[in-house]
């Protein structure tokens, strides 16, 4: 498969009338891992959800293209079928639907009718990925995310990533709530996915994750857009010094988004 590109241009996103994302631009190629860091409330999850088609977010300007195809015109499931994936900061719980049934339906939804994955093959794959993530087998028969601990939910998001093998994945705070061992395991899962046909955008607050998953590029998000980009060393400096130096450098007083602050 040839290299792919996801291209976000001049994106503006509103929620309930207030503009959260303002002129956001980013291009990611398969084979690359990008990281976005930024203080709380600067629009990182909003960006991720809007790209995936969350019903609450309204895109007022700009575009998202996947190899020239207009993503914003696609339904949420079409975006997934086109190769996009979002590991959510707060995954939903679906009672009565087992993890295994759900994942098999999701895999089959991407396949043609008559070409469904065989039950044997599915079970083998799920067993293997759960082993990598050191998840207990019982999770395959648990209801989807119901009663999962914070860390278990994150693992389950990465399990889905590994089962579905998308071309582009956005991982929204996949490290939050994970203990150190779990962080290593989850990172290993993501690293297993790394190849020239997979691109990834990692949203995180902690540089530690980026020690395990080496990013090609690091971006800092404030006020709903990227205010600084660099390599892995940028994350290290943020970890050591926080965000104040960037705010000073750029003359930003309030890094958050919303109506309370007006840019001069």
């Amino acid at each position: 498969m040839a290299a792919s590109t996801i291209k976000i241009e001049n994106l503006h996103v509103e929620i309930e009338g207030s503009e959260i994302i303002k002129d956001f631009n980013l291009e990611i190629n398969t084979g690359e891992v990008h990281a976005i860091m930024g203080p709380n409330g600067t629009g990182k999850s909003t960006l991720a959800s809007a790209i995936m088609g969350h019903p609450k977010y309204e895109i007022t300007q700009g575009s998202v293209h996947l190899d020239g195809e207009n993503v914003l015109e696609m339904d949420v499931d079409e975006r997934a079928k086109a190769g996009m994936f979002l590991a959510m900061q707060y995954p939903s719980e679906i009672s009565g639907v087992t993890n295994a049934d759900f994942m098999r339906s999701a895999i089959n939804a991407r396949r043609e009718e008559g070409d469904e994955i065989s039950l044997m093959k599915f079970i083998r794959k799920m067993d293997e990925k759960m082993d990598t993530l050191e998840m207990d087998q019982s999770f395959s028969q648990r209801y989807l995310n119901e009663g999962f601990s914070g860390g278990e939910k994150k693992r389950n998001e990465i399990l889905q990533l590994m089962m579905l093998e998308p071309r582009f994945a956005i991982l929204d705070e996949i490290d939050s709530g994970l203990d150190i061992d779990a962080l290593k395991v989850v990172s290993k899962g993501v690293n297993d996915m790394r190849n020239p046909e997979f691109g990834c955008l990692i949203i995180t607050h902690y540089q530690r994750l980026l020690n395990y998953i080496k990013p090609d590029k690091v971006h800092v998000m404030m006020q709903g857009r990227i205010v600084k980009s660099g390599g892995a060393e940028l994350a290290e400096r943020l970890e050591a010094e926080g965000y104040d130096w960037i705010k000073d450098e750029l003359g930003i007083e309030n890094e958050q988004v919303g109506d309370q602050q007006q840019e001069a």
Binding site: D75, I94, G96, R110
Partner: peptide, 30 residues
């Protein structure tokens, strides 16, 4: 049906009708 549940399921590639089906079967599963 909770639109967030629908978003979650559809973001994994399930068409709307299939996502609804799963939620309803889950709802009656007890």
């Amino acid at each position: 049906i909770d639109p967030l549940q629908m978003f979650y399921l559809m973001s994994r590639g399930l068409p709307r009708s299939e996502a609804e089906r799963l939620v309803i079967h889950g709802f009656l599963a007890p």
